[in-house]
Structures are given as structure tokens and as C-alpha cells.
């Protein structure tokens, strides 16, 4: 799978690549525009799973691209964190985004702050921020647990436009229910590349798609072969199947 992704990156240098539109990411500009027009901030939550989780890293990559756009309009972005390491990294990311947007003076480090690592303590604090500050747009990106629906429903009640993205399959239904747009599973990982429009990163998305086609083809071939072998030569089927079994 790594080879497919690397090959796609290699071929990307040859020209433009088409990527299918993702409505949740197309709506990012609308959300920023709405916040700017209303003179209200944007709230960004990067999950509760800590910096060692790849979903949090994906969320931080999205934050970088988002902050560059909010910096251009000088729209405040509030980032409450439940992990001090994530807070430190996100401060650097947002600061750099403001520098790149040519608005270093608009950067406010106090808008990216640590609350607590307690799950529901954090949830109630963020709910309080939503109710008091009334952000025009809420972004929930990363890995979430039981707090997903509490956060999304509170945001829904405040009337904010909400864009969520998570690879937590158990929380996806809640986000789909309570948010305007939801990035499902792999779309969270594609978001950074999608927002950047960098050819190399877009090529990686292509690599993912090709990888999926290969996986599906492999699954279909496996099902067909297993079905046939079961009728024609069960011994060969058993031997073939044993290649994929884990023996303790």
C-alpha cells in the first residue's frame, strides 16, 4: 500500500490531478465567511485523544490550513485544548499560519489555551464557551468519545455552522445528526491535502483511492477463489486460508 501511495506521489509531478469535491471541505470558506460577516469567532476542537494519535495530527494539519484563511480575514479562532502538548504544537501552527498570511500582529496566543484533561470537565468548559462566545462556526476534527454528541448538540443549539471530521466510527452517527457537514473516516486524513491543493498531497489522495480499488479487487478475488476452491478442492482452500491465519 505504501508503494502505491509513493508511486502516486511520483506521478503527481507530471501534472494536475482531479479530486472529487468533499462538501464538508467546500463549506470551510462559507463558514469562515459567515464568521467574518457576523464578527464572531471560530471554534476549533482537535479531538480528545492526545498528540500520539494520528487523528489529532490530522486535525492539527487541518488547523494550519484553516488558520491561514482566518488570519487573512482577521477572524479570531478559539482553540481550547485538553492536552498541553497539543496546545503547544497548535500555538506554533497557528502562529506560523498568521505569519504566512502576513498578519503576525493579529495572532493572539491566549486564544489557544489548555482547559483540562478530564473528559467531561473539558466538555462542559467547551459547552460554556459555545454558549457565552457564540462562535459562528464550530469545527470538530480528530478522535472523539462520548462527548461528541454533547458538544455537537450544544453547538447546534447556538446556531453555529458545524463541520465535523472523525475516524471514530462509533461517534460518526452523532456528528452526522448534529452537524451540517461531516468528514467520515478517511476524509479527515484527506482534508489537509484537499485544503492545501498541493500537487504532491493531492497525489497522495489519488494513491489512497488506488489503494482502495486494489483492496476491493483483492477482497472480491479472495471471495470468488474461496467459494470456488471450497467446492472444487477444499484442501487447497484450507492451505491457502492458513497463510492468512495468525498462529499464537
Amino acid at each position: 500500500m505504501d508503494t502505491i501511495v509513493l508511486l502516486a506521489i511520483y506521478f503527481a509531478r507530471r501534472g494536475d490531478m482531479y479530486i472529487r469535491p468533499i462538501p464538508g471541505l467546500e463549506a470551510v470558506n462559507d463558514a469562515i465567511g459567515r464568521a467574518t460577516e457576523m464578527g464572531r469567532p471560530i471554534l476549533y476542537i482537535s479531538g480528545l485523544s492526545g498528540i500520539s494519535d494520528i487523528a489529532t495530527i490530522a486535525a492539527m494539519l487541518i488547523l494550519g490550513h484553516l488558520a491561514k484563511r482566518t488570519a487573512a480575514y482577521e477572524t479570531p479562532i478559539i482553540v481550547p485544548c485538553n492536552d498541553p502538548l497539543v496546545m503547544t504544537a497548535e500555538r506554533e501552527i497557528v502562529h506560523q499560519a498568521y505569519i504566512e498570511a502576513g498578519k503576525p500582529d493579529a495572532y493572539e496566543p491566549q486564544n489557544i489555551f489548555y482547559i483540562t484533561d478530564s473528559q467531561f470537565g473539558y466538555t462542559s468548559a467547551v459547552d460554556g464557551i459555545m454558549v457565552r462566545e457564540k462562535p459562528a462556526a464550530n469545527f470538530f476534527m480528530g478522535y472523539f468519545f462520548a462527548e461528541a454528541l454533547i458538544l455537537a448538540e450544544t453547538g447546534n443549539m447556538t446556531g453555529a455552522i458545524q463541520i465535523a471530521g472523525t475516524d471514530a466510527d462509533t461517534q460518526l452517527p452523532f456528528f452526522i445528526t448534529a452537524c451540517d457537514y461531516t468528514l467520515m473516516g478517511e476524509e479527515l486524513y484527506a482534508a489537509g491535502a484537499y485544503l492545501s491543493r498541493n500537487p504532491l498531497l493531492v497525489a497522495q489522495l489519488k494513491g489512497q483511492d488506488i489503494g482502495k480499488i486494489v483492496l476491493v479487487a483483492g477482497l472480491l478475488a479472495g471471495v470468488a477463489l474461496a467459494t470456488l476452491a471450497n467446492y472444487i478442492a477444499p484442501d487447497i482452500f484450507d492451505r491457502f486460508q492458513s497463510w492468512f491465519q495468525i498462529h499464537n
Binding site: A58, L61, E92, A97, Y189, G192
Partner: peptide
């Protein structure tokens, strides 16, 4: 697949925005 691709992007230095480098174009 997304995890593999993101990990590769970061390991190979293609994605740099988490370093405050504006990578990723």
C-alpha cells in the same frame, strides 16, 4: 489507508504545516 498516507506524508517531510513550515503548499 488514510493513516498510512498521512504517516508517509509526515515521515517524508511532504506535509510540514504541523512544523509551522507552511508545508503542504
Amino acid at each position: 489507508l488514510g493513516v498510512v498516507a498521512t504517516a508517509l506524508r509526515i515521515l517524508l517531510g511532504i506535509e510540514r504545516s504541523h512544523l509551522g513550515g507552511g508545508g503542504g503548499g
